[in-house]
Design a protein around this nucleic acid. Structure first.
Length: 631
DNA sequence: TGAGCACCTG
DNA sequence: CAGGTGCTCA
């Protein structure tokens, strides 16, 4: 679809990536399916022999697998995953107004968003964080050390407000290009918006049943996560009211409204920026009179607030400079902030329940945030717009796991990683994982892990140290968090015997050392222990119960055995356990059953043979888990 | 010798 | 889940 030809910052790939994400409403249930081995064929020796073949055939078409459990995705305990809480009734007009306001907020936010960012920008930050890696575990030191780079760069920007030597034409040209690309993106946003809206409508009218599509359109429609957490989506409410058709007209009008707002905002913001540019270029004064003009719209006011000192800076008004220009914007007064911060992340979702006053709380100057968000991946307006495209200005950026230095930025993958991810929140501060976490919803949440510069700007807005540490924890970790544990447990559904390399690959946000590695290995060891204990227990129980044939021992999602395992590794039950795990569990159960039946358990090392079998049955862990922010 | 594992224990 | 222990293996 849409590609950004002028883009020097991957917006094209980002967009297509997002569109892909959107299109694939469901993650493939098992993209790493292994050859299924019927229990009858599982004699220990045979399996061991075919071990390597097994691994190779892991890529085989899954159709070769017998699907005893047809429950598959649909067996997901559906309802709970919607994450929608009931909302007190609210008049439709009010709701529409709220949406309208949100759209305006987006646009205002866009007006103040960084135009671009050079790839070099992150270097300093990364270098800084990279050095922390050393053996020592003193987090506090780390935190104190980190902000330096930012402080430096920002104060530099703030203080050098003179002598722009570069050709104004060139400058103008660059800005124009950026603005044009921004304009295109805004249009894209608009189209996407309406497209999704329409799509969502038809989907829902056809199906009448909430599914991922609805989730997507809902997420995109509902441009903000209301701070009071009371709202539910338009459609949700309509559904509650007993149908869509009756409210079709309202939706249409809302749609029209959105269209108008977006069109207006696009032209306004572009015009405004051009105006601002010309004003700034004319009088290199940091305080153009235009700023005071009362007739400016809110959008313009926002931009005027940001227009102050910086454009005159520098030998080279590069993209990164422009970004700093925005980032170093002086903290606006509260009454302005309510408008200006709309684009910006205020805080992790959990505490987004907070009041509007949170928006104006900024205990630290932007550039003096008491802790650092290093973002190795450069962030761009396109990314911001993409995020808005999906989530709106208030969407949760809380899970932003800035790419750890360990991820080589030169690697093409490092750019992609955040997009593959799910917002992660440390259980330390968030309690439980959101209910939204289910495979089908992966695509929906991916962009939450954007590393937007605004996050850095807003870190001062976080209210509690707990939140800050949560944010910190999203950078490179020197310890394992409860979220890592949870992730490890989910990984166990795929691999019972992960290699160290796998662990390193799938915990990229963890700074590995001997201790961490052994801890992770220990975790999996404990998982296996529980797993095998359950297997033995249920196998013995089956024998006691008089089960005479292994074929009568099936492991389905209804099985007690599965419930026990699921309770252990997936307590919140918000993860769709892969079918393959059920198969492996069944094989394991059969192994135990057979061994016990044959009195092999008299041999003290009788389990070893079983272990040998089971360790061959590991699957590849899905790519999503590679994201540092998964969960 | 160290890594990785299972097992036992708290 | 982590600590300790003993075993195996490279």
């Amino acid at each position: 679809m849409y590609e950004e030809p002028l883009s020097s910052y991957h917006s094209g790939s980002l967009i297509s990536h997002l569109l892909r994400k959107t299109i694939h409403s469901k993650r493939p249930a098992l993209n790493n399916a292994h050859l299924y081995l019927p229990p009858s064929s599982v004699s220990g020796a045979g399996l061991v022999e075919s071990g390597s073949t097994l691994a190779e055939s892991a890529q085989e078409d899954r159709s070769s697998m017998s699907s005893k459990d047809s429950l598959g995705e649909s067996s997901s305990p559906g309802g709970h995953a919607s994450g929608m809480s009931a909302e007190p009734e609210r008049p439709l007009s009010e709701h529409l107004q709220a949406k309208r306001a949100r759209v305006e907020n987006i646009i205002r936010g866009m007006a103040g968003s960084p135009s671009d960012r050079s790839h070099g920008e992150g270097d300093g930050v990364e270098g800084e964080t990279g050095r922390y890696g050393t053996e020592v575990y003193k987090e506090s030191k780390r935190k104190r050390k980190l902000p330096q780079h930012q402080e430096h760069s920002h104060s530099t920007t703030l203080t050098t407000t003179s002598s722009a030597n570069i050709s104004k034409d060139e400058e103008c040209h660059k800005l124009r290009e950026q603005l044009q690309s921004m304009q295109r993106l805004l249009r894209q946003l608009q189209e996407k918006f309406l497209q999704m809206y329409d799509h969502g409508n038809s989907e829902n009218e056809e199906k009448g049943e909430g599914d991922f599509q609805e989730d997507v359109s809902e997420a995109q429609l509902d441009l903000s996560i209301d701070s009071d957490n009371k709202r539910i989506g338009n459609k949700e409410r309509m559904k509650a009211d007993g149908g869509y058709l009756s409210t079709e007209r309202d939706q249409k009008s809302l749609q029209e409204m959105l269209k108008c707002e977006l069109s207006r905002a696009v032209s306004e913001s572009v015009d405004m920026v051009f105006r601002k540019l010309s004003v700034t270029l004319q009088n290199q004064s940091p305080q153009p009179q235009a700023c005071q003009s009362p007739e400016y719209t809110n959008v313009e006011k926002r931009a005027q607030q940001t227009c102050a000192p910086e454009l005159s800076d520098s030998e080279d008004i590069s993209k990164s400079r422009l970004l700093e220009f925005y980032e170093s914007t002086p903290v606006p007064s509260p009454e302005h902030q309510t408008e200006a911060l709309s684009l910006v992340v205020r805080k992790p979702t959990l505490n987004q329940l907070g009041s509007v006053s949170q928006q104006v709380k900024r205990p630290y100057p932007l550039h003096q945030a008491p802790f650092q968000f290093s973002y190795s991946a450069p962030l761009h307006d396109s990314q911001i717009l993409e995020h808005l495209l999906k989530y709106g200005p208030h969407a949760n950026f809380g899970g932003i796991p800035c790419l750890p230095p360990s991820l080589d930025r030169s690697s093409p993958d490092s750019m992609d990683l955040p997009w593959e991810s799910i917002a992660m929140r440390s259980k330390v501060s968030s309690g439980h994982l959101g209910q939204h976490h289910r495979p089908g919803a992966l695509g929906q949440v991916t962009v939450d892990s954007l590393c937007l510069p605004h996050v850095k700007m807003e870190c001062g807005d976080l209210q509690s140290m707990a939140e800050r540490s949560t944010f910190m924890s999203l950078n490179i970790q020197e310890g394992l968090t409860p979220n890592h544990l949870k992730k490890a447990k989910l990984m166990f559904f795929y691999t019972r015997y992960p290699s160290s390399n796998v662990l390193k690959t799938f915990f990229p946000d963890v700074k590995f050392n001997r201790c961490i590695t052994s801890q992770l290995i220990k975790w999996f060891s404990n998982f296996r222990e529980f797993y095998y204990i359950q297997m033995e227990k249920f196998a013995r129980q089956a024998i006691v119960d008089g089960v005479s044939d292994v074929k009568d021992l099936a492991v389905t999602r209804d099985s007690e055995l599965f419930r026990a395992l699921n309770m252990h590794y997936n307590k919140a039950n918000d993860f769709q356990v892969p079918d393959r795990f059920l198969e492996v569990a069944e094989i394991t159960l059969h192994e135990f059953y057979n061994a016990i039946s044959l009195n092999k358990d008299t041999d003290p090392s009788w389990k070893k043979a079983i272990y040998k079998v089971i360790c061959k049955l590991d699957s590849d862990v899905p790519e999503e888990f590679k994201s540092p922010s998964y969960l």
